[in-house]
């Protein structure tokens, strides 16, 4: 039904100039850090926002992900994999946030009728996502919203591709059931 978007592919989208800037980054060059942040920030924040459904929290997480990536640059064996290294860190941080949020009681203030149907739909989607486990939610978001391939989801989540398949199947099925229930309630 849809393929992966070549332009936004974070795993294979590694430009050769990353290598040059990473080398400069290791030498403590602030300009190199600025370049790499500017290059990857939009995509990283968008991914975190889709997972967390909060753009401000997503910015926090993305900043932490950059910091961690630059701190752990010595662990990166192949500089061409910097993008996927960065995304893995970001996704892991998002997962930690989702897990800690799950421990807290859910907060829902309801929807003002003046907010319109679009906002209502957005809130329903967010509520449904919240009922999924962090692993299922992450898989669903990376595949459906980020439109990553199964291989990319597997690499980012550091799980075998078979696990991605089964998680995605479960997540989709559960989401469909939840969607039906939610629409029955509002009908």
């Amino acid at each position: 039904m849809f393929g992966t978007r070549a332009v936004v592919n974070p795993v294979s989208d590694t430009l050769s100039d990353d290598l040059h800037w990473l080398e400069r980054c290791r030498q403590g060059d602030d300009a190199a850090v600025t370049y790499l942040v500017n290059k990857h920030r939009n995509r990283l924040v968008r991914t975190a926002a889709n997972i967390l459904r909060d753009r401000f929290e997503a910015e926090d997480v993305a900043q932490d992900a950059f910091l961690k990536a630059f701190r752990e640059l010595h662990r990166l064996r192949d500089d061409r994999a910097f993008a996927s290294f960065l995304y893995r860190i970001c996704v892991r941080l998002c997962m930690d946030r989702l897990r800690s949020k799950r421990a807290e009681p859910a907060e829902f203030d309801g929807v003002e009728s003046s907010d319109g149907p679009q906002i209502e739909t957005r809130i329903v989607v967010e509520e449904l996502l919240e009922t999924l486990t962090p692993e299922l939610r992450m898989t669903l978001v990376l595949r459906e919203m980020e439109q990553l391939s199964y291989e990319e989801v597997a690499e980012i989540m550091h799980v075998p591709i078979g696990t991605v398949r089964s998680r995605l199947h479960t997540a989709r099925e559960r989401f469909r059931h939840l969607w039906l229930d939610a629409n029955k309630e509002t009908a």
Partner: peptide, 20 residues
């Protein structure tokens, strides 16, 4: 369930814009 598949399309539409 097939009808609820529409929910997954709605989910995709709810993705944040690329030029966030």
């Amino acid at each position: 369930l097939a009808e609820a598949d529409w929910g997954l399309s709605v989910l995709r539409e709810q993705a944040f814009p690329e030029d966030l």
